[in-house]
């Protein structure tokens, strides 16, 4: 396999992400999130096509009933748009911008797509139930020593280690 530019030292990358997290808390009082943007997309779409449904159901109504604070114009959505831009810049510099599918050595592309879709579906549900994902709930929660961040850490990574054996054929 042809090598593109090497990856950044993981400790350096982690420390710099920590610095950006501190900046996010200092300027905006927010952590670094990702799954909240998915929620914004779903809320905004539903509000657009079925406004009455959205105002009547409690999952949506807190977000759509306030005209001063439309669901798409939130800090998190712009932060995530930045994430997309930042990833493209880094990949462009490193020569990693190309269409490809990455998978374990013993699975077909079809299997990879099916498992990616199922995994995404579960992450979508889990992140809503758990009030955030690996970034917004666990990493940013740990950064402010919130108990929920550490419970999430145990559940996601502890759970992952327990499950890893059963799904090893997907990855090794």
């Amino acid at each position: 396999m042809e090598r593109s530019k090497k990856y950044m030292n993981p400790y350096l990358a982690g420390i710099l992400i920590g610095v950006f997290m501190i900046a996010a808390y200092y300027f905006s009082g927010e952590g670094l999130g990702a799954s909240g943007a998915l929620k914004s997309v779903v809320v905004a779409t539903t509000d657009m096509v079925a406004h009455d449904y959205a105002t009547e159901h409690s999952y949506f109504s807190a977000r759509v009933s306030d005209p001063e604070n439309p669901p798409i114009k939130t800090w998190l959505v712009f932060e995530v748009l930045g994430v997309l831009v930042g990833a493209i810049i880094s990949a462009a510099f490193a020569g990693r911008l190309k269409l490809e599918t990455i998978k374990g050595p013993n699975v077909t592309t079809k299997t990879r797509f099916i498992t990616a879709a199922i995994g995404g579906l579960l992450f979508g549900i889990g992140s809503q139930l758990g009030r955030g994902c690996t970034s917004g709930m666990v990493m940013s929660g740990m950064g402010v020593l919130s108990l929920s961040g550490f419970i999430g850490l145990m559940a996601i990574f502890g759970g992952g280690y327990v499950l890893a054996y059963f799904f090893r054929k997907l990855w090794i």
Binding site: Y25, G29, E30, G31, L32, G33, A34, S35, A37, L38, V83, T115, A116, A117, I118, G119, G120, L121, L122, F123, G124, I125, G126, S127, Q128, L129, G130, R131, G132, C133, T134, S135, M137, S140, G141, V144, S146, L147, S148, G149, I151, G152, M154, A155, I156, F157, G158, G159, G160, V162, L163, A164, F167, L170, W171
Partner: peptide, 30 residues
């Protein structure tokens, strides 16, 4: 600052669902 409140039951259950999502799907949202 925005300080996440702890709801330990849904965080634990949601976290375990996300663990399945991670090991099956190979990504997290970010």
């Amino acid at each position: 600052i925005f300080y996440p409140k702890t709801f330990w039951i849904p965080t634990l259950v949601g976290g375990l669902i996300m663990a399945f999502g991670f090991i099956i799907g190979g990504f997290c949202p970010g």
